Computed example of a mutant assay.
Amino acid sequence: MIEMQDVWKTYPDGTQALRGVSIQVDRNDFLYVVGPSGAGKSTFMKLIYREERPTKGQIFVNGFNIEKLKQRKIPYFRRNIGVVFQDFRLLPKLTIYENISFAMEVIEANPKQMKKRTMEVLELVKLRDKANSLPGQLSGGEQQRVAIARAIVNNPSVIVADEPTGNLDPDTSWGIMKLLEEINFRGTTIIMATHNRDIVNNMRKRVIAIENGLIARDEVRGDYGYED
Rank of each mutant, 00 (worst) to 15 (best):
K112Q: 12
I199S: 08
Q5M: 10
D29K: 02
V146D: 03
N202S: 11
K46I: 03
F185Y: 08
T188V: 15
T172E: 06
K112D: 06
Y97V: 12
P164G: 09
R78T: 07
A151Y: 09
E3H: 00
E108V: 06
I23W: 14
S37G: 06
K56R: 15
V21T: 02
S173M: 04
S173Q: 00
L31F: 05
K126Y: 08
K178Q: 13
V200R: 05
V200K: 05
V200W: 06
K68D: 14
T165N: 09
M192W: 11
S22I: 07
L127Y: 07
I81H: 10
Y76F: 14
K205T: 01
R221W: 05
E108Q: 15
R27Q: 14
N167Q: 13
A209P: 05
R221N: 14
E219C: 07
L127K: 11
D26Y: 12
D29R: 01
V34A: 05
K68N: 14
V33I: 15
L214R: 15
V106G: 05
E67K: 03
P170Q: 09
V25R: 01
S42N: 10
V207K: 07
S157H: 08
N65T: 03
K93N: 15
I190E: 00
P12K: 01
L18A: 12
P156Y: 09
I199A: 08
L18P: 12
E67H: 03
V106L: 14
G35P: 02
I59Q: 04
Y76M: 07
I183E: 03
D13E: 10
I48C: 00
G57N: 07
G140Y: 10
T172H: 04
N155L: 09
D169T: 01
K126M: 01
V153M: 12
E67F: 00
Q137H: 06
Y97P: 10
L214G: 00
G57R: 00
